[in-house]
């Protein structure tokens, strides 16, 4: 049986996002051709031939309650064994592995790889048969989505000149889901501070704040800028994005609250610790957010005298 040649853990970020974002129900075939328990295997063989399919779920009259499945292999065995006239009920596979329609596509791909069946019946929350999914369905859906995706990610770094009273200033553009470059802005900030012989504790606090705010832009925003300003007695890091905005800032500051999807979580982010982390290391911390417009997070860390 063919498997889907996608590594569900280590493929490029775009693909991983895709297979978490797409649900089984977005990809499956909705119109399922079924047969009854008393249907002779011979008739199922004809159905397969006529419809060009390799597996037929056996259900009740409404096509909702699933009892088993008859696959091409079962038919071949029936022909060999001379029992092709028997009712489906007698020989259908009853040990069924099924998917739920709300599961991410990643689950379906893992299932195909793990269990080596050609198809999986899909049930809804009420355990009713709502579809069937094959590797062909998955490959078609992925091709369509990949064709849609053309934009290349890039990151530009701009360093504006210092203004009076400022010791240093850096500005970085950060793009959504750009994990290739994520962390470069905060590394640049850290490098600049290392050259100034800052004490390690303060350096670490600034680095954590910069990194969390940068990752926050990558993971949650539509993209924006991370700017760094250093004065004699303080450092200010500002993350400014173009959206989508935070509906409830207080909730967003709660540890463990996150709107990240499963893909982001699979990359080790989005566990709802970023903003609380950044706040914890900051001396001043403010969030100004408007839904539909954007968010500005400002973290200030005082420098020791």
């Amino acid at each position: 049986m063919s498997t889907i040649p996608i590594n569900t853990q280590e493929s490029p970020p775009f693909l991983l996002d895709l297979i978490y974002r797409l649900k089984v129900k977005d990809v499956m075939t909705h119109e399922v051709i079924t047969a009854r328990r008393e249907t002779p295997l011979r008739q199922i063989q004809y159905i397969m031939k006529e419809k060009g399919i390799t597996g037929v779920p056996i259900t009740d009259d409404e096509g909702k309650r699933l009892f088993g499945i008859v696959s091409m292999d079962d038919i071949i065995r029936a022909l060999d064994g001379g029992y092709i006239q028997d009712p489906a009920e007698r020989w259908m596979s009853r040990n069924l592995i099924v998917l739920e329609d709300d599961m991410p596509l990643q689950f379906a791909i893992s299932y195909l790889d793990k269990f080596r069946y050609g198809r999986f019946p899909v049930l809804n929350k009420d355990r009713e048969l709502v579809g069937i999914i094959t590797s062909r369905d998955i490959i078609i859906a992925l091709l369509v989505e990949v064709n849609k995706e053309v934009e290349k990610l890039e990151q530009r770094i701009v360093q504006p000149p210092s203004r009076p009273g400022e010791e240093a200033r850096l500005l970085y553009h950060v793009r959504k889901y750009d994990f290739e470059n994520a962390g470069k802005a905060s590394a640049g900030i850290k490098k600049l501070l290392l050259e100034r012989n800052l004490d390690p504790k303060t350096l670490r606090r600034i680095s954590v704040a910069a990194y969390e705010l940068e990752m926050n832009l990558v993971v949650h925003s539509e993209g924006g800028t991370l700017s760094f300003r250093m004065e004699k007695d303080r450092v200010e890091i500002e993350a400014k994005d173009r959206g989508p905005g935070i509906p409830d800032v207080e909730q967003a500051m709660e540890e463990g609250f996150s709107t990240a999807n499963e893909w982001i979580r699979s990359l080790g982010f989005g566990a709802g610790m970023g903003l609380p982390n950044a706040k914890r290391v900051s001396d001043e911390f403010t969030i100004d957010s408007r839904v539909g417009e954007g968010t500005t997070v400002r973290a200030v860390i005082y420098l020791p005298k």
């Binding site: 994990f179 994520a182 905060s186 590394a187 850290k190 670490r204 990752m215 990359l267 080790g268 982010f269």
Partner: peptide, 10 residues
């Protein structure tokens, strides 16, 4: 991923 090394460095 790279993020592990960046974190380790910080």
């Amino acid at each position: 991923s790279e993020q592990v090394i960046r974190t380790a460095d910080i």
